[in-house]
Lab assay of single mutants.
Amino acid sequence: GSVVKEKKEKALIEVRPYVEYYNELKALVSKISSSVNDLEEAIVVLREEEKKASEPFKTDIRILLDFLES
């Protein structure tokens, strides 16, 4: 629970300088966080969101995924 939350919060802070739609990304992460149990599940849902998103938000999600998977 809290470790996953920390990882996601740290990821958002780390990617902030590189993303165009930070507030939207943060809102998406919050929405996903409330419906998943762990980081792996969150990553799966983020990948689905990435497929549906259009640029440049798609790239923002990709940047976040790269950080979460590192």
Score class of each variant (00 low, 15 high):
Gly1Met: 06
Gly1Thr: 13
Gly1Val: 14
Gly1His: 13
Ser2Pro: 07
Ser2Ile: 09
Ser2Trp: 02
Ser2Lys: 06
Ser2Leu: 08
Val3Gly: 13
Val3Phe: 08
Val3Trp: 07
Val3Asn: 11
Val4Gln: 07
Val4Thr: 08
Val4Glu: 14
Val4Asn: 09
Val4Pro: 07
Lys5Val: 09
Lys5Met: 14
Lys5His: 13
Glu6Phe: 11
Glu6Trp: 13
Glu6Cys: 15
Lys7Val: 15
Lys7Thr: 14
Lys8His: 15
Lys8Val: 15
Lys8Asn: 15
Lys8Cys: 15
Lys8Leu: 15
Glu9His: 07
Glu9Gly: 02
Glu9Thr: 02
Glu9Pro: 07
Lys10Ile: 14
Lys10Gly: 09
Lys10Trp: 14
Lys10Glu: 14
Lys10Ser: 11
Lys10Phe: 12
Lys10Tyr: 11
Ala11Pro: 03
Ala11Met: 06
Ala11Gly: 03
Ala11Cys: 15
Ala11Val: 08
Ala11Asn: 05
Leu12Phe: 04
Leu12Gly: 01
Ile13Tyr: 05
Ile13Asn: 10
Ile13His: 11
Ile13Phe: 04
Ile13Cys: 14
Ile13Glu: 15
Ile13Pro: 01
Glu14Met: 14
Glu14Asn: 09
Val15Gly: 01
Val15Leu: 08
Val15Phe: 02
Val15Pro: 01
Val15Glu: 01
Arg16Pro: 04
Arg16Asn: 03
Arg16Phe: 05
Arg16His: 05
Pro17Val: 05
Pro17Asp: 07
Pro17Tyr: 05
Pro17Gly: 04
Tyr18Pro: 02
Tyr18Ala: 03
Tyr18Cys: 06
Tyr18Lys: 05
Tyr18Gln: 03
Tyr18Ser: 04
Tyr18Val: 03
Val19Cys: 03
Val19Trp: 02
Val19Arg: 00
Val19Phe: 01
Val19Thr: 02
Glu20Met: 15
Glu20Lys: 15
Glu20Ser: 15
Glu20Cys: 15
Tyr21Thr: 03
Tyr21Met: 14
Tyr21Ser: 07
Tyr21Asp: 12
Tyr22His: 04
Tyr22Lys: 02
Tyr22Val: 02
Tyr22Asn: 03
Tyr22Ser: 03
Tyr22Cys: 03
Tyr22Gln: 01
Asn23Ser: 10
Asn23Trp: 09
Asn23Gln: 12
Asn23Thr: 10
Glu24His: 05
Glu24Arg: 07
Glu24Ile: 03
Glu24Ala: 07
Glu24Trp: 04
Glu24Asn: 03
Glu24Met: 06
Leu25Asn: 00
Leu25Met: 01
Leu25Pro: 00
Leu25Asp: 00
Leu25Lys: 00
Leu25Tyr: 01
Lys26Ser: 13
Lys26Leu: 09
Lys26Tyr: 13
Lys26His: 13
Lys26Ile: 10
Ala27Leu: 11
Ala27His: 07
Ala27Gly: 05
Ala27Lys: 04
Ala27Phe: 09
Ala27Glu: 12
Leu28Trp: 02
Leu28Gln: 01
Leu28Pro: 00
Val29Trp: 14
Val29Thr: 04
Val29Lys: 01
Val29Tyr: 10
Val29Pro: 00
Val29Ala: 03
Ser30His: 12
Ser30Val: 08
Ser30Leu: 13
Ser30Trp: 09
Ser30Cys: 15
Ser30Lys: 07
Ser30Ala: 12
Ser30Arg: 07
Ser30Gln: 14
Ser30Tyr: 09
Lys31Ile: 09
Lys31Ser: 10
Lys31Phe: 11
Lys31Glu: 14
Lys31Met: 11
Lys31Trp: 09
Lys31Val: 12
Ile32Asn: 02
Ile32Gly: 02
Ile32Phe: 03
Ile32Lys: 01
Ser33Leu: 11
Ser33Pro: 05
Ser33Phe: 15
Ser33Ile: 13
Ser33Asp: 09
Ser33Glu: 09
Ser33Val: 14
Ser33Met: 12
Ser33Ala: 12
Ser34Met: 11
Ser34Thr: 09
Ser34Val: 10
Ser34Ile: 09
Ser35His: 10
Ser35Ile: 08
Ser35Asp: 06
Ser35Gly: 09
Ser35Phe: 14
Ser35Tyr: 12
Ser35Pro: 03
Ser35Thr: 11
Val36Trp: 07
Val36Lys: 03
Asn37Val: 05
Asn37Ala: 11
Asn37Asp: 09
Asp38Ala: 06
Asp38Thr: 14
Asp38Met: 06
Asp38Gly: 09
Asp38Phe: 05
Leu39Asn: 05
Leu39Asp: 14
Leu39Cys: 15
Glu40Thr: 09
Glu40Tyr: 08
Glu40Trp: 08
Glu40Phe: 11
Glu40Lys: 04
Glu40Ala: 09
Glu41Tyr: 04
Glu41Asn: 04
Glu41Phe: 04
Ala42Ile: 15
Ala42Trp: 13
Ile43Tyr: 08
Val44Gln: 10
Val44Asp: 13
Val44Pro: 10
Val45Met: 14
Val45Ser: 11
Val45Asp: 09
Val45Lys: 12
Val45Thr: 07
Val45Asn: 08
Val45Leu: 14
Leu46Glu: 00
Leu46Gln: 00
Leu46Ala: 01
Leu46Thr: 01
Leu46Val: 01
Arg47His: 12
Arg47Asn: 08
Arg47Trp: 14
Arg47Ile: 08
Arg47Thr: 08
Glu48Pro: 00
Glu48Tyr: 13
Glu48Val: 13
Glu48His: 13
Glu48Phe: 11
Glu49Asp: 03
Glu49Pro: 00
Glu49Ser: 05
Glu49Lys: 05
Glu49Gly: 01
Glu50Thr: 06
Glu50His: 11
Glu50Trp: 14
Glu50Gly: 09
Glu50Pro: 00
Lys51Phe: 09
Lys51Trp: 10
Lys51Ser: 12
Lys51Val: 11
Lys52Arg: 12
Lys52Gln: 11
Lys52Cys: 09
Lys52His: 10
Lys52Ile: 08
Ala53Trp: 06
Ala53Arg: 04
Ala53Leu: 03
Ala53Tyr: 08
Ala53Val: 05
Ala53Thr: 10
Ala53Ser: 07
Ser54Tyr: 08
Ser54Gln: 11
Ser54His: 09
Ser54Thr: 12
Ser54Asn: 10
Ser54Leu: 11
Ser54Ile: 08
Glu55Gly: 12
Glu55Gln: 12
Glu55Pro: 11
Glu55Asn: 09
Glu55His: 10
Glu55Met: 12
Glu55Thr: 06
Pro56Gln: 06
Pro56Trp: 08
Pro56Ser: 07
Pro56Met: 06
Phe57Ile: 03
Phe57Leu: 04
Phe57Pro: 00
Phe57His: 02
Lys58Ile: 02
Lys58Asp: 02
Lys58Val: 04
Lys58Cys: 06
Lys58Ala: 12
Thr59Asp: 08
Thr59Trp: 12
Thr59Phe: 08
Asp60Leu: 03
Asp60Asn: 03
Ile61Glu: 00
Ile61Tyr: 01
Ile61Thr: 00
Ile61Ala: 00
Ile61Asp: 00
Arg62Pro: 00
Arg62His: 13
Arg62Lys: 11
Arg62Asn: 08
Arg62Ile: 06
Ile63Pro: 00
Ile63Phe: 07
Ile63Asp: 02
Ile63Asn: 01
Ile63Gly: 02
Leu64His: 00
Leu64Met: 06
Leu64Glu: 00
Leu65Tyr: 03
Leu65Cys: 14
Asp66Lys: 09
Asp66Ser: 14
Asp66Phe: 14
Asp66Tyr: 14
Asp66His: 14
Asp66Leu: 13
Phe67Cys: 05
Phe67Leu: 06
Phe67Val: 12
Phe67Ile: 05
Phe67His: 14
Phe67Ala: 15
Leu68Trp: 06
Leu68Ile: 06
Leu68Val: 05
Leu68Lys: 00
Glu69Thr: 11
Glu69Phe: 07
Glu69Tyr: 08
Glu69Gln: 11
Glu69Leu: 08
Ser70Lys: 12
Ser70Pro: 14
Ser70Phe: 12
Ser70Arg: 09
Ser70Gly: 13
